[in-house]
């Protein structure tokens, strides 16, 4: 017999070894996430996927599904926590969406829209972060990095290159590039690498492609991130 657990009253089948996130997405239930991407081993750092499992808050992207769990995913309290986390991500970096090439295609922004976030609540850090435009085809705008480590994981697990790493801890955390000069141009990154395309925000951008799709016709301009995420999950399973 298939094993099951329950999310918000809905019965979800799962196989041993699946996380709550994996089982939920396969069953068509969206759990807010940013550092999770079904292609890679989970990292569990952004905490947007926090759900309540049998009375305890856990990260759905790392927590294993098990028989009979009672999971709350959508509640006012959890969504308010998610909104606060998203607001912290916005004030910690420098996110000026009107001047960002990624606007409309950005998962950070789309999560904010999804949570009905209209302001940033906290005081802004306005911290000075660098832009590395040294590479001929790819640029990094550190102002928009949320340290999700997806580029780190993609470079390591798919490209076999280790171009990126996170250095420092807490508030001093930074994305660093593995090259003698620390610049992207001296790294092994190629524009065709998975790591160059995986960033959920506008921190890693492919040069000369920014406005090929006009604002207003971009992924999240009209579609919710939950529908987009579940549709791409479906595609991954079909193939």
């Amino acid at each position: 017999m298939t094993k099951t657990f329950v999310i918000d009253g809905k019965t979800i089948p799962f196989e041993d070894g699946q996380t709550i996130m994996q089982a939920a997405s396969a069953a068509g239930v969206y759990i807010t996430h940013l550092c999770h991407n079904p292609q890679f081993t989970p990292h569990g750092s952004c905490k947007l996927c926090t759900v309540n499992v049998n009375g305890r808050n856990c990260s759905a992207c790392t927590f294993p599904a098990s028989e009979g769990q009672n999971v709350t995913n959508i509640s006012k309290e959890l969504n308010e926590d998610r909104e606060k986390i998203t607001q912290m991500l916005f004030v910690e970096g420098n996110h000026f969406c009107p001047s960002c090439e990624k606007t409309g295609n950005c998962q950070l922004q789309a999560v904010a829209y999804h949570l009905n976030m209209t302001d940033n609540h906290f005081p802004h850090f306005f911290e000075n972060r660098e832009v590395d435009a040294s590479h001929p085809d790819v640029m990094i705008d550190h102002n928009r990095c949320i340290f999700c480590t997806l580029c780190v994981r993609a470079s390591e697990q798919v490209d076999g290159k280790n171009v990126f790493a996170i250095s420092g801890r807490g508030i001093d955390k930074r994305l660093v590039v593995n090259s003698p000069s620390g610049l992207l141009k001296d790294s092994a990154l190629d524009v065709s690498d998975c790591a160059a395309h995986i960033c959920p925000t506008g921190a890693i951008l492919i040069k000369r492609t920014g406005y090929s799709v006009p604002i207003g016709q971009r992924i999240y301009d009209h579609a919710h991130i939950d529908a987009v995420a579940l549709a791409s999950e479906g595609e991954a399973h079909d193939h």
Binding site: F90, H95, C97, H124
Partner: peptide, 17 residues
């Protein structure tokens, strides 16, 4: 607060660094 600049400083705040 109406618009990006009122909400996060917007374009003028790009002088902040």
């Amino acid at each position: 607060a109406v618009g990006a600049c009122a909400i996060n400083g917007g374009l003028p705040a790009m002088r902040n660094h």
